[in-house]
Design a protein around this nucleic acid. Structure first.
Lengths: 260, 260
DNA sequence: GGCCTGCGTGACAAATTCCGTCATCCGCAT
DNA sequence: ATGCGGATGACGGAATTTGTCACGCAGGCC
């Protein structure tokens, strides 16, 4: 249920917008001044602010500017009789996300409001964020999420996952992983890689879903992204895990890292 | 330097937009089909896509829809001669972030493009994210960032910060913190709180900026948000740290947790 | 089907990090 | 100047991470 704050002093306009919002399935809170807006925003969380410009206590755009000066905030759509291009430019540059001149088409208003709320809910793209299928890796913070759920991984587990994810779709041999993650250029004659992979797998495990870390027997391991749209019902399909055609030659040395 | 991809088959329109982009200081890459757009997006990262609808290989909006089906993506502004309200609704509901009908005002186009890129760079609001001044706390992942820089804090340090931040602006006495963070209802007669505060402070420290954790002598500690707009030049102003008027009575028991 | 090799994981010990305590020095207030 | 409160370095114990080992299971080949 989307929560929308309307800052509008004209009762007729407010009633129209209330009807539109109701029809769109939103909860609309209406105030008639920027002071009222300030109070409402301090009390509640909203998904969208719809702000008129000519209000009894000033220009709604001034309030929007002060919101923006305080940092990232809820999206703002300005509705105003001040509808020339220069007014729109002023409003958009002042921090509004959209600007509609009155009179407006109700359907267009709703579509624009939806687009704003949709965009505001999207995670920001960042060079620090690696997203592969349903797994998100924040490189600097060393955190991992799967399907939006936080996954607590240790330092070594993170490095292992990061390396596998950087080469998603490719098989990494045990000796590659020993080199990359452990800085070992020789075979320690233990199953340290296997043990860490097992631990990481357990942490990434979600009941009913394929695990993104797959074994290529005799070669090594690969990260195979699981699509976010993959439903839990498909868990029975073991096909992808039985792939026998590696995209990268691991060579027989993958077996060399094992305890004989 | 913003990177903009233009998908437009009309040469004259493309030339106009190239001039506008150049004047706005953006780097514009132009392609003439959705296939070209697909290729460009696969090769490079863009800050904005500007997409026409009637293209030689189909409707640009269909491509936008397929981008959206794949998850969060770069913002899209549709420019189109198809300018009725119903067309705009179709475009916005189809995944575009904005929709401008041709002919359009160049200044309005630039202002809208800027608003889209500004919004796309904003971190998503989330109940998991607590933002206070220039400090961001991700509650589930137990991570902390100050001015976008990752701050490595331990579990106890995180809990302490979280508690202080939840009561930002209020003084928390040592016994309050002992109760809340250490689950101790008695005074251990050690300076464990002080030590942890010191450790946390050091980790949050940024040269030239006030530390958000302030001491109220004889009472306790408080989290005082440092505004993201506060420049490093103001570091000499020690005023906020010397505040002598606590907003909450800590009482004299703050001293009780000290080693005698 | 049997056998052999490779893989997965439980258990344990060593290594590393976190946390609490203690003590000392510095800063602040009277 | 004096005394109290706060900040922080250092150390040792607690908790977590990491590596090793061993054993049982799974997969592939003959």
């Amino acid at each position: 249920m989307r929560r929308v704050l309307l800052v509008e002093d004209d009762d007729a306009a407010a009633a129209d917008l209330a009807r539109i919002a109701d029809h769109a399935g939103w909860t609309l809170t209406r105030v008639a001044s920027t002071a009222g807006g300030r109070t409402a925003v301090a009390r509640e969380t909203f998904d969208l602010l719809v702000v008129d410009r000519m209000l009894p206590d000033g220009d709604g755009l001034d309030w929007v500017r002060s919101l923006r000066a305080r940092g990232p905030a809820v999206p703002v759509l300005i509705l105003s009789a001040l509808g020339r291009a220069a007014n729109k430019v002023e409003g958009l540059d002042g921090g509004a996300d959209d600007y509609l001149a009155k009179p407006f088409d109700p359907d267009e208003f709703v579509a624009r409001a939806r687009a704003l709320m949709r965009r505001a809910a999207m995670p920001a793209e960042s060079p620090d964020l690696v997203r592969l299928g349903d797994v998100e890796i924040h490189v600097k913070a060393r955190t991992v999420h799967r399907r939006g759920q936080f996954v607590a991984v240790s330092r070594k587990e993170f490095e292992l996952l990061h390396k596998l994810a950087d080469h998603a779709g490719d098989v990494l041999t045990r000796s590659m992983l020993l080199d990359a993650v452990w800085n070992l250029r020789f075979d320690p004659q233990t199953n340290v890689v296997d043990v860490h992979v097992s631990r990481l797998r357990r942490k990434l495990e979600i009941d009913g879903l394929p695990n993104p870390i797959v074994t290529q027997r005799g070669e090594g391991y690969a990260f195979e992204p699981v699509s976010p749209s993959e439903a839990k019902d498909l868990a029975g399909a073991k096909g992808p895990m039985d792939a026998t055609n590696p995209s990268e030659p691991g060579g027989p040395d993958a077996t060399g890292a094992r305890q004989p």
